[in-house]
């Protein structure tokens, strides 16, 4: 989880992701940030994320992102 927080804070250093219950709802991540995040986590975790899974609910918390990484064949 720490690594995911690190990726997020590198992407959007102005936010403290630990104080949000929903990154998308709170505006910490928008659709363009998600494009950047997908390539960052695919590279880091050797995952291949399905286009159908690129939906806000898979990026709203670190737990959701971790689940997506596992589902997409990555290991964390």
């Amino acid at each position: 989880m720490e690594e995911i927080y690190k990726i997020l804070s590198e992407l959007r250093p102005e936010f403290d992701f630990t104080d949000s219950d929903d990154f998308v709802e709170d505006g910490y991540l928008d659709s363009f940030d998600i494009i950047s995040l997908v390539s960052a986590i695919e590279e880091k975790y050797n995952a291949k994320i399905d286009g159908l899974d690129v939906v806000p609910e898979n990026f709203c918390t670190v737990e959701a992102i971790a689940a997506l990484i596992r589902k997409s064949g990555g290991t964390i």
């Binding site: 709170d26 505006g27 928008d30």
Partner: peptide, 8 residues
């Protein structure tokens, strides 16, 4: 366009 703490 505002979303809580971000603005576009």
């Amino acid at each position: 366009e505002d979303t809580k703490k971000t603005s576009y």
